[in-house]
Computed example of a mutant assay.
Amino acid sequence: MPFVNIKTPEGALSQGQKAEIAHRTTEMLVEYFTEAARPHTMVLIEEVKDGGYTRADEVFTIPQEYRAKD
Score class of each variant (00 low, 15 high):
29 L>C: 08
47 E>G: 04
56 A>H: 06
62 I>L: 15
17 Q>S: 08
22 A>T: 06
42 M>T: 12
6 I>C: 11
64 Q>Y: 01
21 I>T: 05
2 P>T: 05
39 P>A: 15
37 A>P: 01
65 E>S: 11
32 Y>M: 07
9 P>T: 00
70 D>A: 04
7 K>C: 10
42 M>L: 08
16 G>K: 00
58 E>V: 06
48 V>T: 10
24 R>T: 06
36 A>W: 08
19 A>W: 02
21 I>V: 12
27 E>I: 01
39 P>G: 08
52 G>E: 06
28 M>Y: 13
32 Y>R: 13
56 A>I: 09
16 G>E: 08
46 E>M: 07
11 G>V: 01
29 L>N: 10
42 M>F: 14
64 Q>N: 12
35 E>T: 14
51 G>H: 09
65 E>F: 12
48 V>Y: 01
35 E>Y: 07
15 Q>F: 08
30 V>Q: 09
10 E>I: 01
11 G>L: 03
46 E>V: 11
66 Y>G: 11
21 I>A: 10
58 E>A: 11
5 N>C: 08
26 T>M: 04
4 V>T: 10
43 V>H: 02
49 K>F: 11
37 A>N: 03
49 K>I: 05
25 T>A: 06
12 A>G: 01
56 A>R: 14
24 R>I: 05
49 K>H: 10
5 N>D: 09
59 V>C: 04
65 E>D: 14
30 V>S: 11
15 Q>H: 12
30 V>N: 03
19 A>H: 00
55 R>Q: 13
65 E>V: 14
38 R>L: 05
11 G>Y: 01
20 E>Q: 12
68 A>L: 02
16 G>D: 02
29 L>E: 00
55 R>D: 09
41 T>A: 07
6 I>P: 00
67 R>P: 02
27 E>T: 00
